[in-house]
Simulated scan of single mutants.
Amino acid sequence: MLKKFLFLILLIAIGTAGFGFWSYQQASQFTEQQVVLDKAQLIEVKPGTSYRKLIRQFEQSGWITDTKWARFTHKLSPELTEIKAGTYWVEPNQSLASVLTQLKSGKEHQFSITFVEGSRFSEWLQQLEQAPYLDHELSDLSEKEIAKKLGIDRPKLEGLFLAETYHYTAGMSDFDILDRSHNALVSVLETEWGTKSANLPLKSSYEALILASIIEKETAIDSERERVSSVFVNRLKRGMRLQTDPTVIYGMGDKYDGNIRKKDLRTPTAYNTYTINGLPPTPIAMAGPASIKAALHPETSRYLYFVADGTGGHKFTKSLVEHNKAVRAYLRTLRN
């Protein structure tokens, strides 16, 4: 009798172990199944979302099957159920375990926004308005109100942000981006100002930023920036007007139609460096680190003029006679 009883216990133990092993396999297969997606996409996990609620959402979306085994994950792999709210990028053919591990890590998808050197603040606001998954706190604010919110003691924000690529996660705001960009600008400007070349005709780091914005608009060629800077520095030292077209265009505002005429060069504005002495009152665009560095570390030269050479670069000259010759050569290149 005892033998039969022991044999029965053994059978039950074997059956229990077998069932346990089979259940473990089923639960493992559940977490190892592929999440069915046609293409990579963002998955948003809202605050307060539980593991079971998430699994139901996945099932209802047709991404996974056999959710009856989901409850065993708590016992077999409890770490996979500790999901965190956020926005995550999921690739096709990822396993459910891989996705859950991703959601547990809290490493949200990084979006990026790139502000191009030479662009204007108005263009930045448009980019920010169109940026996905970004909270818009500045939409209804004027430029002065934005400046106040950012703690910037200037009514005009042109040039006060560093043109670069910035990364953000869902839920960050346009204010966060601008605040970070302004701080980056201040850091670069202070560093370059602290090591600036001697005898520059610049009274402040803000004037350096104005010059950097002009350099940014005049050339996109890295090897030319310091030479372009030297032309403007040499002219400032001699008391010559800068006579740079981008300042004329900026001063024209909405009146600019893509062409600059002789009357535009003669029409005074606060920014027209054909009619004013020295630098314009504010930057005319956003500058990148290279142009800021060039403004404060110009090439040592005697150049006073430059004009496009028709091949994407510029011809630099030391006298008006040489400059006029270079202009005629440029016009011939255009005609040909």
Rank of each mutant, 00 (worst) to 15 (best):
T101F: 05
P47W: 15
L8G: 14
T16N: 05
T244N: 00
S230A: 15
V99T: 00
N199M: 09
Q26F: 00
G313Y: 05
G20A: 10
P268T: 00
R52Y: 13
S205W: 07
S291A: 10
A184L: 13
E123S: 04
L265D: 06
L202C: 13
T333Q: 14
S119P: 01
G312S: 11
R120D: 08
L141G: 01
H167L: 12
G278I: 05
T333R: 10
Q60C: 09
E164C: 04
E145P: 07
K217N: 08
L150Y: 08
S230Q: 02
E145C: 06
L242S: 06
F316S: 00
D179C: 04
V327P: 10
W89S: 08
K263V: 14
V116W: 13
I260H: 03
V99M: 04
G312H: 09
S28V: 11
K104W: 04
L76Q: 15
S187L: 13
A97P: 04
Y88P: 11
G258E: 08
L138C: 14
S119V: 03
I215T: 03
F306A: 08
G313W: 10
A85C: 10
N183H: 15
A131T: 14
L76E: 12
E79V: 15
G258I: 04
R302C: 00
L211Q: 07
A308G: 08
A40P: 03
E192I: 03
G253A: 07
D140T: 15
F316P: 01
K46M: 12
A326M: 04
T73Y: 04
L76W: 09
Q57W: 03
I292M: 11
S122Q: 09
A147S: 14
N93L: 02
